[in-house]
Design a protein around this nucleic acid. Structure first.
Lengths: 237, 237
DNA sequence: GAGTGGTCTAGACCACGTA
DNA sequence: ACGTGGTCTAGACCACTCA
């Protein structure tokens, strides 16, 4: 852990404990330099982290104010959603029912999204994921076979992401997502146990590895009343 | 415009023009230092911007790779969505039909969200916004009266955000959003011209000013087939 | 004018990936 | 072993807000 991360952690704790109450100003950066015995750049970087988290806002010539976003930020940040369901809902029981699992050659859409040639096969995976035994999300996933060798149905029943991280030592750089509402189709109704008139929240995502290769293209469908999607949007100027 | 912004702009143009093609490596930071005659910290900050935009990915010991996110990034970034509709869809004709506009005292939910006391009034604004004469989004907005004096129906018919920026010189720090799917109600059906069975995409948002005060709490409802929401999620580590 | 945060420098050392 | 990007320093100057 770097110095600025440690300092950010300390400042975050002071904010959360009410040591630096909402709407108050943080000590100025030169004072923090003295307190922590580091250079000002390091302090600034720590404060930058808190800014990105939406905890403070800095203004030149004025100071750094503690914001009061009560009720919005969950305990952690939703940024890591592609760590997979398993990490998100810990404490709850998660099952995955594999509905379809096969290998195929990519059509033009998948060639484009996953940056593959037509002769490079992809896995197609359809899973129903259950939380505490009730159906939660229907996932339709494509992954390049060359990047994820030896994928088995057994792995699909637990956590793909755990396999990618712990066995293949792959790490993610980020993801693009598109969120939309849709009507439920018969597939949704069958597996998600919903009515014809129930809307669906669909999240389409393309996940990238650190080396820039796309590793997953997927669409996840949730019943409208089981999930929403939260975002913190910080403007930097 | 700062040095690192200028450099980021130049590098971005080189990437977009194909001068630095996808999957290639950027020149290393010391070479860029020589080319631009600045310190390495400045180069690094420029590259950081491109990283946040999803254009490149840097890896210690390896280099900075140009990513290939074709088809996902719109010409600009969706980050500025709270600049309002007017800016988003330029070139198209935008009307706003004011359905309701009044002032009221805030209930406990609004007191909480907008950080107000019960005696500090809020505007309630319900608008139907039309793009090229067809109904687009139904907006239900609350704003503190004290922060937005002299709001008139005439302003509501054009752009609230323009008024906030250009007349009141307020600027935004960021926003929290929650996105969900919902069933349409009779209100949606009447104004958005949709069927009973059509789902709705709802975006709930709380917009903050630079000084940390919440300026707007709103819910926007779109017909499911007229809008989706895209996000770029960059993991930093 | 006093005090704040934002930018920038020149140089150092470190952690990591690749070969 | 080498080259890469990541971190950090000490100090400087600038732009802004507020009284």
């Amino acid at each position: 852990m770097t110095k600025y991360q440690k300092i950010a952690k300390i400042l975050r704790e002071r904010i959360q404990s009410g040591d630096y109450p909402p709407q108050s100003l943080l000590p100025n950066q030169t004072d923090l330099v003295k307190e922590f015995g580091v250079s000002r750049v390091t302090i600034k970087k720590a404060i930058e982290i808190l800014t990105m988290e939406g905890l403070v806002y800095s203004q030149r010539g004025f100071g750094t104010k503690v914001l009061d976003y009560k009720g919005w930020t969950p305990q952690d940040y939703p940024f890591l959603e592609y760590d997979g369901l398993t990490k998100q809902l810990n404490g709850k029981k998660i099952d995955s029912q594999v509905i379809d699992f096969n290998v195929q050659f990519p059509g033009s859409l998948l060639q484009d999204k996953l940056q593959l040639k037509e002769h490079q096969p992809v896995y197609q995976i359809i899973r129903l994921r259950k939380v505490d035994d009730s159906p939660y999300v229907l996932e339709h996933t494509f992954m390049p076979v060359q990047l994820v060798p030896n994928l088995t149905e057994k792995i699909l029943q637990s956590s793909i992401y755990q396999y990618l991280h712990e066995t293949l030592h792959l790490s993610f750089a980020g993801a693009y997502r598109t969120i939309r509402a849709d009507k439920s189709d018969s597939f949704d109704q069958k597996y998600l146990n919903c009515e014809e008139t129930d809307p669906i929240l669909e999240v389409e995502q393309l996940v990238y590895l650190k080396n820039g290769q796309p590793i997953e293209y997927s669409k996840s469908r949730n019943r409208y009343d089981t999930r929403s999607y939260s975002i913190l949007d910080v403007l930097d100027n």
